[in-house]
């Protein structure tokens, strides 16, 4: 769309800007202030300079949490993206079945995150859970409070359950926007199913998939409530991710300075990743419009 250059548009932005600035910029400034001081209360505080950043960057617990976080994020992306595409291809296109399937698939997304944790706790417990009891009946001593591998597998399964619908729905909407004429043309050319997927469906999906990957990556980086309820970060600290380490430090131990420094490092990682994705999306749209114009 050809947009008009008009700086009066700022007046339309202004109310939103004030609100978001109130809840984003003021707290961010405070975090920066915390990060260079040892704060006991508003009157008792000492300037520490970059000390907290140095400690945090060299803190083995946090480094481990960061590594775990990346491992977790990439694992779930590797599972959810193909699975989501597959489900989107399977979903009925019209009729009451389409609505019913849509509603059922959306359900996990609408459950409060700690309830998701509770559901999976109830589902996987060795004494009362369907899955827990089921796996034990099969002869495997499944125990998420003792065995880190079980805990990991369960958390990944839970996340797949919780968030694959998002990818599936994104892809479904991408597929729905392909005109029928494309499929007809493919039929006339006797294109194989794979060719239809590769040359008609996948290109249409890339746009939504980038959004999906971006959202999933960001949300998996913030994951807190689900593992907190399900495993409490355990056994040991095998399922403690970044958000939980941070929350424990900030709320549990009241270490304002270190946790603020850690928050900023965390935020910088997020900022870099989201900038890369955003630039990718924008360049893709630019390419699309260029092709459309040509």
């Amino acid at each position: 769309m050809n947009k008009v250059y008009n700086n009066k548009a700022w007046f339309l932005i202004l109310p939103m800007l004030l609100l978001v600035a109130f809840s984003a910029i003021i707290p961010l400034m405070t975090v920066v202030n915390y990060s260079v001081q040892d704060v006991f209360d508003a009157n008792t505080r000492f300037f520490t300079g970059t000390e907290w950043f140095e400690t945090m960057l060299n803190n083995p617990t946090l480094q481990a949490a960061l590594l775990r976080q990346f491992a977790f994020s990439f694992t779930i992306l590797a599972i959810q993206i193909p699975l989501g595409i597959g489900i989107a291809l399977l979903m009925p296109k019209r009729g009451w079945q389409a609505s019913a399937v849509l509603i059922l698939i959306t359900l996990p997304l609408l459950i409060p995150w700690n309830v998701v944790g509770s559901i999976w706790q109830l589902f996987t417990r060795g004494d009362i859970g369907l899955m827990g009891v089921g796996i034990r009946e099969l002869g495997y001593a499944y125990n998420i409070t003792r065995n880190p591998a079980d805990a990991w597998a369960t958390i990944i399964l839970m996340d797949v359950w919780h968030w694959t619908p998002l990818i599936a729905l994104l892809c479904y909407s991408g597929l729905r926007s392909i005109p029928d004429a494309y499929y007809q043309a493919a039929r006339i050319d006797r294109a194989s199913k794979w060719a239809v997927f590769r040359y008609i469906q996948l290109p249409k999906l890339t746009n939504v998939l980038v959004i999906g990957i971006l959202l999933r990556f960001m949300h998996s980086f913030m994951i807190y409530a689900e593992p907190f309820v399900l495993t409490g970060g355990g056994p040991g600290s095998s399922t403690t991710f970044l958000s939980q380490s941070l929350t424990t430090m900030a709320i549990g131990q009241q270490d304002l300075g270190p946790s603020a420094a850690f928050s900023l490092i965390y935020f910088l990682i997020i900022l870099l990743v989201s900038w890369v994705f955003y630039t990718a999306i924008m360049n893709m749209q630019k390419d699309n419009t260029n092709q459309g114009g040509a």
Binding site: I13, L17, V20, S23, A24, I26, P27, L28, T30, V31, Y34, M218, F221, M222, Y224, L242, S243, L246, T247, A250, I251, L256, S259, A260, S263, L264, Y266, F267, I270, L271, S274, W275, Y278
Partner: peptide, 24 residues
């Protein structure tokens, strides 16, 4: 840039803002 800044807020982990929010 404004649009991008908005998106970063969408991605900001709530845990980062926890303490200042409480104080604010």
């Amino acid at each position: 840039h404004l649009f991008f800044w908005l998106l970063t807020n969408l991605m900001a982990p709530p845990a980062v803002f926890l303490l200042p929010y409480f104080q604010l």
